[in-house]
Design a protein around this nucleic acid. Structure first.
Length: 357
DNA sequence: AAGAGCCGCAACCGCCCACAC
DNA sequence: AGTGTGGGCGGTTGCGGCTCT
């Protein structure tokens, strides 16, 4: 036999909480705590609410020191950086932002942050398309050449891959790790998440890799008092996610650097926008642009085949793009790649994340 | 002024894992 | 050992308010 059912869904109240309900819940928890049993709690205080609903209300709204709205630029940057690195693990991201709840961050990302980024990106695309049209009109004789010539993406400042041990910001990284146990817990938690994915062998090894990460080399430095550009998110000493974003202008240049990568792929049609491009990759292997076989996609297969045991026997990888995003963040074997390739993959993963939204 | 459409956010849903029974 | 719930999480929905036409 299991436990008793948590609540009778037909008899519990749903929808918005009234001030009276809030007051009851808050007052009780402040005096007695949750008692470790959310399901029993509403009955104790005479609330016709599901225990889960009470828990949610407390965690997301009534809990002390909760901040709502008014996200700062620094918080934006942290959210973006973590999202790029670990994806939609809102609870983990929230843990890095005191006073913020996972629900709040999730809502903020979904309703504003991603649009903020996409909006800029789309404007750039529209400007490029308009420029292409103008070129066609100006010189119809060479129009075809211009369409097939890769677009000259704007040059960006180089994004350096900074080895952990030589990075002055991280020299004293041990001092930043005040709670190694919690970090380990976090890493295990992150690793555990991979068990949700489809490849058991890969997951098993991935989990091992994560558990074996030298904690001293895992360091996230929110350092709210310092310039955001000094922040770095480091997973192991092989994958360093540079966080040089001082504002969204710079942030969206990351998208442009993904564009620059396309330039290196012979296949690229300059009229294809990023969304179409990533969609093509996601949708179907046969449709993926030819150049990817030898460049990006080939690299992916190296990643999966060489270290993760993902269908490596056949030489065919059934790893998904989503898995690649995870690999980019965690796979130690990425250190085999040139830094530029790592940055390329990271940019692609970010672009994919944006596009998939 | 009013209806349509959009946006932001609180709350719900459904899934997974750990663990009580 | 098997079953099923509690807690936790990410994804989604629905509603109220705002803006636009």
């Amino acid at each position: 036999m299991g436990r008793a059912p948590c609540c009778d869904k037909a008899s519990v109240k749903r929808g918005p909480w009234s001030p009276e309900e809030d007051a009851k819940l808050k007052s009780y928890i402040e005096q007695h705590g949750t008692g470790g049993n959310w399901i029993a709690l509403p009955q104790k205080i005479g609330l016709k609410r599901c225990g889960k609903s009470c828990r949610l209300r407390w965690l997301n709204y009534l809990r002390p020191n909760i901040k709502h709205g008014g996200f700062s630029e620094e918080e934006d940057n942290i959210i973006c950086s973590l999202y790029i690195s670990i994806g939609s693990r809102w609870s983990i991201i929230a843990a890095q932002l005191p006073g913020r709840t996972d629900n709040d961050i999730k809502n903020y990302w979904n309703t504003r942050l991603k649009k903020k980024l996409l909006g800029k990106h789309r404007k750039e695309q529209q400007a490029r398309r308009a420029a292409t049209v103008r070129m066609k009109q100006d010189n119809s004789a060479t129009a075809i050449d211009q369409v097939t010539t890769p677009y000259s993406w704007p040059q960006l400042p180089p994004v350096s891959h900074v080895p952990v041990m030589s990075n002055p910001i991280l020299v004293d990284q041990e001092a930043h790790i005040k709670d190694q146990a919690s970090l380990r817990k976090l890493l295990i938690k992150l690793g555990g998440r991979f068990s949700d994915h489809h490849h058991d062998d890969y997951n098993h090894e991935q989990q091992s890799n994560i558990n074996n990460i030298n904690i001293a080399n895992f360091c996230y430095q929110p350092n709210m008092s310092s310039p955001v550009q000094d922040q770095q998110l480091v997973f192991d000493n092989t994958v360093t996610l540079n966080n040089n974003y001082t504002n969204f202008d710079v942030m969206t240049e990351s998208l442009s650097s993904a564009n620059m990568m396309y330039q290196g792929l012979d296949c690229l049609d300059s009229t294809m926008d990023l969304d179409q491009f990533v969609y093509t990759i996601n949708q179907s292997d046969p449709q993926r642009p030819e150049g990817l076989n030898n460049n990006l996609y080939g690299s992916m297969e190296r990643v999966s085949g060489s270290s993760c045991g993902t269908s490596s026997n056949s030489g065919e990888s059934n790893i998904t793009w989503g898995d690649i995003t995870s690999l980019i963040s965690y796979n130690p074997m990425l250190s085999d790649f040139e830094p530029s390739q790592q940055n390329m993959l990271q940019d692609f993963a970010f672009e994919d994340s944006i596009t998939a939204l």
